[in-house]
Each structure stands twice: as structure tokens, then as C-alpha cells.
Write a protein that binds this DNA or RNA. Structure first.
Lengths: 242, 242
DNA sequence: ATTTAACAGTAAGTTCCATCACTTTCCCCT
DNA sequence: AGGGGAAAGTGATGGAACTTACTGTTAAAT
């Protein structure tokens, strides 16, 4: 049995969101495209012909609401698959927007090609289904976190997920290796910037977190966050933000 | 172009959640089990060996939170697939509880058998993936509805989805053909019974809904509900509660 | 027919959270 | 070095939603 620390210590290599075989297939039928900071790979509602796998860089997936509010659902990095929900769909339009937070490269894979390839290779089908099903599980745990413990629950669980996905070890705790503005954190939680600011101030006062000079958050007491929201210790492959 | 009325008029046959081929496969490798009112087909956390397809009856899928709160996520009927998220999973435990609201029968399908069958028949794989992906889309629209317009948004969107899934035509609007207590409606919305009661009272006062003697809700002005929450008219195969 | 239990309905008080309005801090730019 | 813009931080206020507490209603149970 590994402790969470040991699991996290594997560092950047701890995530293998898609299997090596699946990745190989995707690479073989895809083409590389550069993605540039603050641009978008695609926008919600656009017609979808391709799906993407991230090679490097960071991509934020979000949904826009009618009233102008934005809901951030995922933060994706190397080996994450995005745009996948348009696969096997009758009217393939992107459901989310993909904003580039850090530049890098993606593999662009033609939807039809991929569909055919998947259907021809049952091992890959297996991997793909496994990935999809896992993704759905994350989503169900997320919906609970966001709804069932108020805004505090939403923020704390977001912080926990960010640590699980982007936390690096630090002598005082876990450092979340991407910086977000208060507004962005609020968009994860369907809360306001001011509420998030106040909650972070309180956590800082209680010495549960600290904010670094570059804006990154250091979580000093992860267990406190978990306790406060009645975290049931779901596995790290579910409790993340990818 | 069909109007929503025309689509709904197709009545009970408007939903074909899974394709006839997929259904045939499932039936051929499954066995029948009777399900009895107020019982459970399975509970959250139990080890999962089978998945189920509903033949008749009504089944409610819900997630329990640490603080005792319950979140109802789906209401399933004939041809709906449940327990599906344990497929292709490493540690197959049910993520939701399946409570029987109306007695009936389910087809019990062994997980391993189904996995093998799916991998051997790519046409079925295709259908299955399509179903999964569609399911994920529903979920994303749901998370937006529940989070982005307060409790009113959550309740109104729940009513709209119930009409889309269980609405039958009525001279004054759409009658939701299952009855729920205020508490149950609250559990759909992550709200309290009292809040739901007040919102329903307000809708009744404005003559937008009416409550029948058996507790069923008659939605007299569906467009009002849609307008109030900035409904973007997503298709009926997404905006439902199955 | 009366009791009981479950649910609906309402009101008052409290807490949570969004909104508004502003100041302060940070950091980029020339 | 100083100015401008973006983000952080904070207080006041109001409204939304939860809590508590109670009454009214219905339907089943004895």
C-alpha cells in the first residue's frame, strides 16, 4: 500500500490518463499542431471534425452559460484527451471551449479516422472505454463536491483536485504548480471572485494555505480541507481536475 | 423541422436510449430479475459484477453524501441502462444507488460477458460508445443547470427534464407522470424541502404549474420555466432525466 | 372511527453568498 | 521612476436559501 505522498512523489509521471497503446494509435493517425498562449483550440458550439491529445502545454476546458458566467470543468496537460465527447455523435459540435493557458503542442486526430481505428482494434476500444468510463466517474464525484457543501465545499474540493493533479512537494505542504486568479478559481466553483477571496483569506489566516509571490497556492494542510468537506478519500484517479 | 410538441407526441416511444441491436445483445446474454417497489437493485459502494437494463418499472439513481444528503441524478425506465460506469473499470464498485420507485423487471447482464461481447462486435461497440458519450453530454448540461442559476435554476431545469422524460399531453400543458414529494424534488436540486415548497407555491400562484390530487405536477407554461433559466433549447435527447 | 405517520405548507430568524463600491497592491510599460 | 491597468483585498448591504419550529392535510393502520 502506497501513501498518498508516495503516489504524488512520482511527480509529473503519475498520470497516465490514456494507455500507451491508445496513445500510440492516436499519434500514428494524427498530426501535430502548435498551440499558442491565450488562444483557443476550439470554441463551444463549433462543428467538430477532430479530437485532440495534448503533447505539451496546459489547456483549460470551460462551458459558457447564457448569463455570461463561465464554468471551468477541466485543466488538461500532457496525454489528456480533449474534444472527446463529439466522438460517435450525430451532430458533432464541441460542448466546451478549450483555452490555452500554457503554449505547447497537440496531436490533431480526425474523428472519423479515429472512430474507424477504434472499431477495428478491440484492445484499443477497451482502453478507450475504460478512459471514458473513468472520466464519467470523475464527473459524478465533481457534481457532488460542487453541490453538496456550499461554496466552501466547491472551493476546497477544487483545491484538493488541483493538488492531486498539479501539486508538487514542498517542505510545508503541496504547491499547486499553476497560478490562477481569484476570478478563475471562482469560475471553477460557480462562485464570485469576492467570495473566493474571502475564503482564501480565511484559510490563510488559519495557516492552512499560503499564496506564493507568483500567485501559486501552497496547501499547507490538505487534511484540513478534506475534513471540512467530508472527503471520502476517493482515489486520486477520480479526485483530480484533468 | 418538428416542433417539440410533435416530438413529445410520439409519447412513450420517443425514447430509444439504446439501439435495438445493443438491446438484443444485452437480452441474449442476460437473465431476467423481478424488482420490487421500494427495494434497491444495488447500493453505492457495493462490488459490481453485473449491469442492468430496465424492462419495466421505474428506478431512481442517487448518490449519498457524507453529511447524509442525497443527490438524485437520474430517473430510469424501460430500456435505460444502469450500473454502466463499472464497465471496463479496475475496481468495479457501484457509484450510485438504484432505488426501485415502480416495480418491474430488469435484465441482469454479467459485466465480463458484456465486455467480451462488446469487444467482439464493433457495431455494438459503436452503439455503446454513442450511448456513453450522449450520457456524458447530458451530465454536462445538468451540471450547468444545477450550478449557474441558483436553486430556481436547479428546480426549473429539473421540472423541464421531467416533462421531457415523463411528460404526457394534457389539455392545459404537460403532466409529469410520476409523483415526487417535495423532499425528493429537493434532492434533485441539492436544495431543502422548504425552498422547493416555496418555489412551487410561487409557480402555482403565477399559474405556471398545478399540482394534481395524486401529487403529480402539471406544467402549464413550460416556456416560462425555460425563459426564467435562460434555456438554450438543447435537444430532448440531452435535456432529460434518464 | 380514531390514531398515527408522513407530507405539505408557512413563518421567523439566521447564515450564506452575491452585489456594489471602493482602496490597495502588484507588475508591466515607456 | 512614475503611470496605468489588472488583480487582490475589504466593508456594507440586500437577497437568497437554510434552519427551526410549528400547523394543516391526507392517507394508511389499528
Amino acid at each position: 500500500m502506497q501513501s498518498q505522498a508516495e503516489i504524488l512523489l512520482k511527480g509529473k509521471h503519475r498520470d497516465e490518463p490514456i494507455s500507451p497503446q491508445l496513445r500510440e494509435l492516436l499519434e500514428s493517425i494524427g498530426t501535430i499542431r502548435k498551440i499558442e498562449k491565450d488562444g483557443y483550440i476550439f470554441h463551444e458550439g463549433e462543428e467538430a471534425h477532430d479530437i485532440y491529445i495534448i503533447q505539451s502545454g496546459i489547456v483549460q476546458m470551460s462551458k459558457l452559460a447564457a448569463n455570461g458566467k463561465e464554468l471551468i470543468l477541466r485543466i488538461c496537460k500532457k496525454n489528456d484527451l480533449i474534444g472527446e465527447l463529439t466522438l460517435f455523435s450525430d451532430n458533432p459540435a464541441f460542448l466546451l471551449s478549450a483555452k490555452i493557458l500554457e503554449p505547447g503542442e497537440v496531436i490533431v486526430i480526425n474523428k472519423d479516422k479515429l472512430e474507424r481505428a477504434l472499431l477495428e482494434n478491440s484492445m484499443l476500444t477497451f482502453e478507450f472505454m475504460k478512459w471514458t468510463s473513468n472520466h464519467m466517474r470523475k464527473f459524478q464525484s465533481k457534481i457532488r463536491d460542487l453541490l453538496l457543501n456550499g461554496k466552501k465545499g466547491a472551493l476546497y474540493s477544487t483545491l484538493i483536485r488541483l493538488v492531486n493533479s498539479y501539486g508538487i512537494e514542498h517542505k510545508d505542504g503541496w504547491l499547486i504548480n499553476i497560478s490562477f486568479t481569484n476570478q478563475e478559481l471562482a469560475n471553477f466553483c460557480a462562485a464570485t471572485r469576492e467570495s473566493v477571496n474571502r475564503m482564501l483569506a480565511e484559510l490563510r489566516k488559519k495557516d492552512k494555505i499560503a499564496v506564493m509571490k507568483n500567485g501559486e497556492i501552497l496547501v499547507k494542510d490538505l487534511d484540513y480541507l478534506k475534513d471540512e468537506i467530508g472527503c471520502e478519500g476517493c482515489p486520486i484517479e477520480i479526485c483530480n481536475i484533468n
